[in-house]
Structures are given as structure tokens and as C-alpha cells.
């Protein structure tokens, strides 16, 4: 699994560049490159459905983020309690890594998962649903409640975006842009 490590290191480098670079547009492009590297990792871990979805979602996210950052590279303040903030951040990340390494000992070894629930799906999935793509049979057959909740979240999110970016309903906005329809 050497190539997996290499592409993961590429993703990490992309993330570091995205965090540390000054220009916002370059930062968005770097995080998008990291996401495309992640798509290749999903493909190597034998998850083609997730890879397709990640690839497509990544491009949509890139378009939206560029919309948010275009012509907006403003200066932002670097003063303030620099040392205190960095200390708090480092302590917090250290606590997270400690807990994560304690929990890591409880996990099964990489490459040999516990398949207590999924063995039932692998055994019975094709006979019960007649779908040859087992991921689709779990997503829409055995665990369709999850998909229903996910569709509800998407619906709520779209309504929330429409409410947040609204033109009418606030007084000064109505006066300023009365003739603007949208």
C-alpha cells in the first residue's frame, strides 16, 4: 500500500498549502486539488460510488467557493493575542491526538475489518432486492430511512439558503432595490 501513502501525503500537502497561503483564490484551488486526490484514494480503496460522488461534489463546491471569494482578497488583521491563541490551539490538538491514539488501539488491524452487520448484507442482499450493486441495495433497500433523512436535510438546507440570501423582507433592502425583481 505504498501508493496509498504517497497520495495521502499529497492530500496533506494540499491541505497545508490551502491553510497557509495568503491569497484566497489559491487557497480554494489548493483545497480542491486535495479533494481530487481524495477521490483517487477512494478509487484505490475499492469504493467507486464514493469516488464518483466525491469528484462531482468537489467540482460543484469549487464553483460555489470561487463565487464566494472572487475579488475579495482583503487585508485582515494579524494583531491580537497571538501567543495565547496558538498555545490554546496546540493544547487542543494535542488532547485530540492523545485521545485518538488511545482509541486507535481498540480498532481492528488495517485490512481486516469486523463485518458483523455487513456479512448479512453481503449474504442476503442480492436475493432480497435483486440489485447487483450492493451499495445501492443497502442505500435504498435496507437503510432507506437514512436516505429519507438525508433528503430532508438537503431540502431544509436549500430552504435555509433561500431564506438567508433574500432581497425582500428587510426595510432598507426594499427601499434600495425596489425594482429589482429577484
Amino acid at each position: 500500500m505504498l501508493e496509498l501513502h504517497l497520495i495521502l501525503i499529497f492530500v496533506i500537502i494540499g491541505a497545508i498549502i490551502a491553510v497557509e497561503i495568503k491569497d484566497l483564490l489559491s487557497s480554494v484551488v489548493a483545497v480542491s486539488a486535495a479533494g481530487l486526490g481524495l477521490c483517487i484514494i477512494f478509487l484505490m480503496l475499492k469504493a467507486p460510488d464514493v469516488a464518483i460522488t466525491q469528484l462531482v461534489v468537489e467540482i460543484f463546491l469549487l464553483v460555489i467557493l470561487i463565487r464566494a471569494t472572487i475579488r475579495r482578497d482583503l487585508p485582515f488583521s494579524v494583531s491580537g493575542r497571538w501567543f495565547f491563541n496558538t498555545l490554546i490551539t496546540v493544547v487542543f490538538i494535542g488532547m485530540f491526538l492523545t485521545v485518538a491514539f488511545i482509541c486507535l488501539k481498540q480498532l481492528p488491524e488495517f485490512g481486516s475489518p469486523l463485518m458483523r452487520v455487513s456479512s448479512f448484507y453481503l449474504k442476503e442482499g442480492f436475493d432480497k432486492t435483486q440489485a447487483t450493486n450492493l451499495i445501492s441495495s443497502i442505500l435504498l433497500g435496507f437503510r432507506a430511512y437514512d436516505t429519507l433523512g438525508e433528503a430532508t436535510i438537503l431540502f431544509t438546507s436549500v430552504i435555509a439558503v433561500l431564506v438567508v440570501i433574500r432581497k425582500k423582507g428587510r426595510k432598507e433592502v426594499m427601499e434600495k432595490e425596489d425594482k429589482d425583481e429577484f
Partner: peptide, 20 residues
């Protein structure tokens, strides 16, 4: 979506991207 990789989410986003 039920015979090969893909499905409703990925296909829906691709259709949206064509309009975009």
C-alpha cells in the same frame, strides 16, 4: 444506479452541473 457505480446523488449533481 442499481447495476453499476453511480446512483441518484452523483447523477443529480451531474445534471445540475450541466445547467451550471
Amino acid at each position: 444506479g442499481h447495476v453499476s457505480p453511480g446512483g441518484g446523488f452523483a447523477g443529480g449533481v451531474i445534471i445540475a452541473l450541466s445547467f451550471v
